[in-house]
Design a protein around this nucleic acid. Structure first.
Lengths: 218, 218
DNA sequence: TGTACATCAGTGAACGCGCGTTCACTGATGTAC
DNA sequence: TGTACATCAGTGAACGCGCGTTCACTGATGTAC
């Protein structure tokens, strides 16, 4: 990630094995679920002995933390890329859904049922704020015609989470709404609650997006 | 649940112990998470030996299935109670949030990250449809002024999930939207994604409800 | 270019643990005559 | 009311398993002179 140029061969090898461990971890996450993640199983699938992994991760918890961090970072990168041509809420929405469907377990590691007792490290919060900032930019660029609601004034007094972003409360509200509505359809879809219902989840998602941005953008 | 009158003492005792096991299971679910549910641990906390529980549940999976079923049924009952004075969407919304906050792990067992490989039994689907029916009734009673969307016509052709309910597509759409939006804020709140953000999740939830029903109902 | 030494990846054995589940058994509770 | 039998709740031992993690060790890779 940083300083790739001045790596010694040993450092490069370490980074490579670490990455390979994480790849196997993702695989295992996808097939067996988050709580079944086992260092021994990963080692076995890599053709190594169990204790060998302790050269690369101090504990199982550290590996999970790393996976969570990577998941957040990957979403932040995806968002940033979707917003590079300029702030664009529909583009963010599509990027979010694509990112989630590409690897549902990565999405669930971030937004799924929290692991009891697990505490996300500080830098994850930083990345989360970065994601929110991109979203706020996009919502600020949206044409605004919605009337002010009581919740808007509540937000005016509780805007620390916007991290200094100059958006007016209506935009803060819209960003939150954007976030919760898309997450609502997406998480129900990923949890399988729409299977067997007949309709196309993608269209429901698109309908929610339209309601948020105005049908004109479609 | 059924036939309580003609129970023999032995049957009554069985039912009692089964209930006690489930209570301990919920407790353990709340403290250790869904995947850490252990028959042995439950038995120990009840002052029994591990194998004793096999008189009451054929396996760990059967116990979990029973918990899932109970969770669905309890939501269905809550919904039905909230709709007894008459179909009332805001009442359902408040009932849903109350039900979720009263026991977050029960909510998460239904709507959280799905356990890989776990397949819900058929009667759960039946209960889920019952819940949806109550919601459809409430949405049908709501004043309707929204313009028809492209998704509405898609729903017109994919309405099997409404299980014969005569609601027009706009109502189907509204019911789905009701469901996904409330779930969106609720699940993010329960997963802790709003902690440290400053605003009051209850107000965001109320704002979403207002947007769904029109501010007049508040 | 060669030798001595330090670094470090990986191994295998071991520890203690808890899990789900089976099995043969004991002892109490209920039933039939 | 009393005896013989069937039912069934619960026990303790056992099986096999996989887990996270530690430890002392081997052997290869890099570094310093």
């Amino acid at each position: 990630m940083a300083d790739t140029g001045t790596q010694t061969p040993r450092e490069r090898y370490r980074a490579q094995v670490r990455a390979e461990i994480k790849e196997h971890a993702w695989e295992q996450l996808a097939t067996a679920g988050a709580s079944a993640l086992s260092l021994n199983a990963i080692a076995k699938r890599m053709g190594m002995s169990g204790p060998a992994l302790y050269r690369y991760f101090a504990s199982r918890d550290e590996l999970i933390t790393e996976l969570v961090r990577d998941a957040y970072q990957s979403l932040a990168d995806t968002f940033r890329a979707a917003a590079t041509p300029g702030p664009d809420a529909p583009a963010l929405a599509h990027a979010l859904r694509g990112w989630a469907l590409r690897d549902p377990h990565r999405y669930l590691l971030v937004y799924g049922t929290p692991v009891p007792g697990y505490q996300a490290p500080d830098d994850v919060t930083t990345i989360a704020r970065d994601i929110m900032a991109t979203l706020l930019d996009a919502c600020a660029a949206l044409p605004s015609d919605a009337p002010a609601t009581p919740f808007d004034s509540h937000l005016e007094e509780h805007r620390e989470w916007a991290d200094g972003h100059p958006a007016p409360p209506a935009v803060l509200h819209r960003a939150l709404t954007f976030w919760t509505r898309l997450h609502g359809t997406l998480s129900l879809e990923l949890a399988g609650h729409f299977t067997g219902m007949g309709f196309d989840p993608a269209l429901l998602y698109a309908a929610e997006l339209d309601a948020l941005t105005g049908p004109s953008t479609h």
